[in-house]
Nucleic acid binder design. Structure first.
Lengths: 357, 357
DNA sequence: CTGAAAGCGCTTACAG
DNA sequence: CTGAAAGCGCTTACAG
């Protein structure tokens, strides 16, 4: 592959001049510029980004470590991150931790070794030594979605407290009194926060949250299945299951159906994280939607600010409830069936902004 | 950040010795090795992969350019690629072309500039000059899923002809005679191949495929919606819509519901590409499943073989039909309803190997 | 077993 | 406006 020297020789100038042309440096004669450009073209020259990075100490690359690429929420997050990064002239390398702290460390180490300019992380756990070290060592870093408390790193996330309260209001209005939740790993902030918000909202309605109604999950489908089976085995099973992420909701749906039960007739189901598929499940699932694309974009902006020496700050956006049919309808069953036949089964008006695939 | 020189100074040896220790070179005294390791630890030294790459002309990085990350099929492909690559000591940088040839070129260029060791591509189109050039220029390359004919690059893909024939047999057995298809872009091999296979299978049953029953899509949901609307506007609409990818199937489902029609009662629906969500849609969708994970792994193996100088060859795996309920059931409606209540709504036995989330 | 030296392909003060 | 030179952080033949 042709190097800058080859181009210089072909154009009859020095490597320095070639470099200046390529980098748009103003002090180059137009004659030299023309000859260089012609040589670049003739040789099919492409600058070696590795060499450039070594020299400039910049890779124009962002690292993104997420917990689970297969989770549509993170897939969308990753996509929006890449788009915004590209708009700022950065590439992104994605590391999929698969909810495994060791794998997360592997990716962080790999990314650091590659000298990425900045790191975006949605931590799988409470923070390994490596992660904490990275945060302190000066590599610009921003947490997105999940975060590690007590670490001096900006956090870009959505606050779901109000939406969780709206959900509880909705459920209460439908007459449900026994509400259960499938929690995420306690080591993640989103895991504990969502449970707290739920608990608080229940308190407002004077509803209890017995320990048996708190299932322990890990944000993966299988754990949602297990937790739901445990609920259904209870002498007095809950009337509603609230899964704190979309994959656990899917697992819950599996478990419910495996029993030959149906949603919402036998038991209601709601989820944190709205995804396009929830419109198409049977029944469409009531969910709390995060402004996922905006989270990704805001996170990149915050990180790029840090990298380029501008002050950057935490951003908190708001999640909101999208009511569908998985928690029941405030009508008689016949009415409901008739209505269903008339209207397309899309999201309720409030959900107008949810992007469909 | 500490460099190899700092470590050398700390350990009282030369940089060459540090390098040897780090790379597991045998000829290092155990005393030197110990001191170097201690120094590495003391300084928290991490080798600079950029410098190493410049020197060795290897980045241990694979590029993966896919057409659409948000398509669960490609998400799973990307995940399996990363896993297999990691097992071979490679990282992967993903470029999302979003079905846009220019964006695809952007990523290929970017990846080439970064001097990735090899490129895995699922081309969005028939091949830009840049892509063709890359194929010839010696960067090891492998096509996965989609490919460009006439280019001397190994192809790792699934053959769906037999599964498409099985699908047509299934549909014919259910009494369907008017079958329509939503095609992918003609510029992609998977786009044209699936239509051909369908056409051929119809011919075997003496069924026609009128032009009006061939919708033109682009593998995105919106195009599936449009094509389906056009079908439904026909004086004699089809009894079945076969979408050649999962997102267009979703669009078709939207269009059908927007008319207040139901699947499979009013119209049947089948899709190419099986995804976990198809088990949970209303109704569960009959689909042709590719061995996605195996495709990704085989593609990486082929690419790594090329990179490391071993001969590598094309691989063709087999797709297979997974029957669910979206094309109707060979029973009276009452029977069917009763059966549904008894059994969990998972995939049919043949689908046992489909991974659920 | 070890170190001095060259060199990977760039960029950029410095001098002219 | 231009070029020679140094140097980014490594690896590796070469000589000892």
């Amino acid at each position: 592959m042709a190097s800058i020297k080859d181009v210089a020789a072909e154009a009859g100038v020095s490597a320095a001049t070639v470099s200046r042309v390529l980098n748009g440096h103003p002090s180059v004669s137009s004659g030299a510029r023309t000859r260089v450009l012609a040589a670049v073209d003739a040789l099919g020259y492409r600058p070696n980004a590795v060499a450039r990075s070594l020299r400039t100490d910049q890779t124009h690359t962002l690292g993104l470590v997420i917990s689970d690429v297969l989770n549509p929420y993170f897939t969308e997050l990753a996509r929006s991150v890449e788009e915004e990064a590209r708009a700022h002239g950065y590439s992104v390398i994605i590391g999929n931790a698969d909810e495994q702290p060791e794998l997360q460390d592997h990716h962080v180490r790999n990314l650091l070794d590659r000298r990425i300019d900045g790191l975006l992380v949605s931590p799988t756990d409470g923070g390994s030594p490596l992660m904490l070290d990275a945060a302190h060592t000066g590599t610009p870093m921003v947490f997105v979605d999940r975060w590690i408390p007590g670490v001096d790193v900006p956090v870009v996330r959505a606050d779901g407290r109000e939406a969780v309260r709206d959900l509880v209001t909705h459920l209460h209005g439908l007459g449900h009194r026994r509400l259960a939740i499938i929690a995420g790993p306690a080591a993640t902030m989103t895991g504990s926060e969502r449970v707290e918000a739920f608990q608080e909202a229940l308190r407002e309605y004077g509803l209890p949250l017995p320990d048996a109604y708190v299932g322990q999950g890990d944000f993966q489908a299988a754990s949602g299945r297990r937790a739901t089976e445990a609920f259904l085995n209870l002498p007095e099973p809950p009337e509603v299951v609230f899964a704190t992420d979309n994959l656990m909701a899917l697992g819950a749906l599996d478990a419910i159906r495996a029993r030959g039960m149906s949603v919402p007739h036998d038991i209601a189901l709601a989820a944190f994280d709205d995804i396009p598929w929830f419109v198409h499940t049977d029944p469409p699932i009531t969910a709390i939607a995060q402004p996922t694309g905006e989270l990704g974009r805001a996170a990149v902006r915050a990180l790029v600010d840090r990298i380029e020496g501008r002050p950057s700050q935490s951003v908190t956006l708001t999640a909101r409830l999208v009511v569908r049919r998985s928690c029941g309808e405030p009508r008689t069953r016949c009415d409901a069936r008739r209505a269903r036949r008339r209207a397309p089964p899309g999201p309720a008006p409030r959900a107008a902004r949810v992007r469909k695939p």
